[in-house]
Every structure is written in C-alpha cells, then in structure tokens.
Amino acid sequence: MSANLIHMLIDATWQTLYMVAVAAIIGAVIGLPIGVFLACSQRGELLSAPLVNRVLGIVVNATRSVPFIILVVAIIPFTRMVAGTSIGTTAAIVPLTIAAIPFIARLIENAIREVDAGLIEAARAMGATPLQIIRKVLIPEALPGITLGMTLAVVSLIGYSAMVGAVGGEGLGDLGIRYGYQRFMPDVMAMVVIILIVLVQLVQTIGEWIARRVDKRAPRNRGA
C-alpha cells in the first residue's frame, strides 16, 4: 500500500473521529435535558407536563423513524443554514447531530427511569425541589446507565458516519466506498473495515470501563 494511501487512511480516521465526537458532544448536551424531561414529565411525575411530554415524544419518535440516509438528504436546506454549506465533513456533522439527539434522549430517559422510585420519594421527603432531585439524585444514580447509553450512541454514530459520503462528507466510510468499492481496491476496503472494528472495540471497552467505575451498586472486592 502506497504512502499516499496510508495518509488517506489516517486522514479519514481523524475525519470520522471529528464528526462523531462533535455530533456526540452536541447530541449529549441537547439530548440530556430532553431525556431527563421525557423521563420526568408524565402525569403525576416530578415535572408533570403530560401534553408537552406527549408532543416531544412524538417528535423524538418521528426523527428516529427516518432512515439516516434519507435524513441526510431531507435536511440539506437546514444544514446549509447552520453550517453555511451543505457539502463536506463539517456540514455532515449537522445530520449526524440531528440523528444523535433523539437517540441519546431516549437512552437517557431509559437510564433515568431505571432509578428506584424510592430514592425520589426519599428526596421529596427531605424537601428537595424537582431540580435538586434531578441534579442530586436522578442523574448521579443513572450515571452507569447513561454512560452505557452514550457508548451505544457513539458506536451507532460511527456507523452513521459512513453514510455522509452522500453529501460530500469524508471519513472512513466515504474512503471505503470511493476507493475500496468504486475503484476496486480491496486492500483499502480491508483496512477501512479493520480500523472501524478497532474503533468500535475501543469505544465499547472504554465506555464499559467508565460505566464500571461509576457504578457503585454492586460491592467490589476492595482487598487488592
């Protein structure tokens, strides 16, 4: 494999990481409050707002039911508005983020719903405000689940990022399609696949490690 190709692989890896990281971070920043709200706003819950909850739930479901490749094309005008252009790697972050937000919101909602209702009750009995309950009880207690959810989201984003070649986004997926597939370069294809496998393994391992670190629910062997 030529030095040129190796260079392209390295660049593509960085581009993938760049798109995924930015989309995951923005997705988490926006998805977290939405997820918390979804988890706490049904009738009789902490932030009881059943109507808003219903509407938001429908919007989240709708976004999630659009296949990613269609989402990428469908929101091109929006992408142009946000990124100034609808073509290229940076522009590709827009659809990735739009796909990440509802996904992350649902994962966080699930993690928060797992928190024992008894803890909310205890916090209410202490005289906690709903916001204090969210900050001091729900999020810390849901952290292991949130971490695993974010891991899943990043892995999914790595997969999605392979499709942004459709709007001129670069990265590993795009490289694999253009060189490995269209130019019949099986060695490039193989390298792309290997790098993707390694990336996903790495993300998964790190995510699980962090989740284990923040999870105090099971006793640990403290001897060693």
């Binding site: 009750e121 205890a122 009995a125 629910r217």
Partner: peptide
C-alpha cells in the same frame, strides 16, 4: 420547609447507591 423538620426512614432504606 415542613419536610425538613420531618425526617423519614424507609423499609428499603432508599440510600443513594452512588
């Protein structure tokens, strides 16, 4: 305010695991 003047303990303890 009233709740802060009333402590409560529970059958299943309800301690924060974190």
């Amino acid at each position: 305010e009233i709740r802060r003047e009333v402590g409560m303990i529970f059958q299943h303890f309800n301690l924060l695991s974190s």
